[in-house]
Amino acid sequence: MSRERRSAGFYVLAVFFTLFVIFLYGPISTILILSFQGPEGGLTFPMRGFSFHWFTRLFQQQAVGDFGGSFSRSLFLGLMVMITTVVVSLLAGLAFRRRFKGSALLFYLAIASLIVPSILVGLGVGITFQVLGIRPNWFTSGFGAHLTWTLPFGLLIMFAVFNRFNRSYEEAARDLGASPWQTFRNVVLPLILPSLIGVGLFGFTLSYDEFARSRMTMGSFNTLPLEITGMTTNVTTPVLYALGTVTTVFSLLVIGGALAAILLLRRRSARRA
C-alpha cells in the first residue's frame, strides 16, 4: 500500500491529541510523585526528600480511618458486582437475540438506568430501604445501587457482541447434532469470552470507584471511595496521595490483568482457527 503524505491537519491534531493525553494523565502523575514525599514534605511541590514514609503511615490504623476495612469491602463488593454483571448481562444479551414481549420496554429501562443521575439512584434506594424498614448495607442496598450502573454497560457491550456475531457457527454446531447447551458451552461461549472479560472489567472497576450511588446505600460501613472522600476534608498530609497511588496502582493492575487475559484468549483462538 502506498502511503500518502501526512497533511498539515494530521500534525495539528496529533499535537492536540498529545495535549489531551497529558491533560488526562498529568494530574494523576503529580499525585504518584508526591506520594513519595519525604516525611517533612507537604501537599505540594517541592519534594523534600524521597521516602516511603506516607505509605507506611497508610497502613497504621489510626492514621487514616479504616483503610483496610474499606478496601476489603470495596474489593468484595466489586467482585460481587462483577460476577453478577457478567452473568445477568450475558443472560439478557441472549434473551435480546430473540423477540420477546416487553423487550423494548426492558431496553428503555436499561437505558434509563444509565440516564438517571447517580445521586438520584443512591437517594432513591436509600429512602426505599428506610421506608421498607430494611437496614441498608453494602452487600444489599449498596450492591443493588451499583448494579443499576454496571448492568446497562454490560448489556450494551453484549448488544455490540451479538450484533456482530456470526450465527452460522451455531447453525453448524446444531447441524452436527449439538444440543443447545453444547452449542452454547462449546461454540458461543469461547467466542464471546474476551468480551465477557471486558464486561467483568467494567463491572468491577465501576463498582470499585463508585461514589454517588454509594453515599446513602452502604449503611454503617464505608467503601473505599467514601473513605477517601471523607479524608479529603480532614487529612492534610501526603498520606492522602499515598492512598491515591495505592488504589490507582491497584486499578491499573486489574485493567492490565483483564487486557492480558483478553489478548491471550484472542491469540489462542486465532491460533486454533
Binding site: 443472560l91 436499561a110 434509563a112 438520584l120 445501587a145
Partner: peptide
C-alpha cells in the same frame, strides 16, 4: 420462547427493584 423470558428475568427484577421502585419512592 420461555427461555428468552427466563434469561431476561434477572435484569428485569434488578431494574424493577433498584431503579423503578426507588424512583417511584422518591
Amino acid at each position: 420462547r420461555a427461555s428468552a423470558y427466563l434469561q431476561a428475568l434477572p435484569l428485569t427484577v434488578i431494574l424493577l427493584f433498584f431503579l423503578v421502585l426507588p424512583i417511584g419512592m422518591l
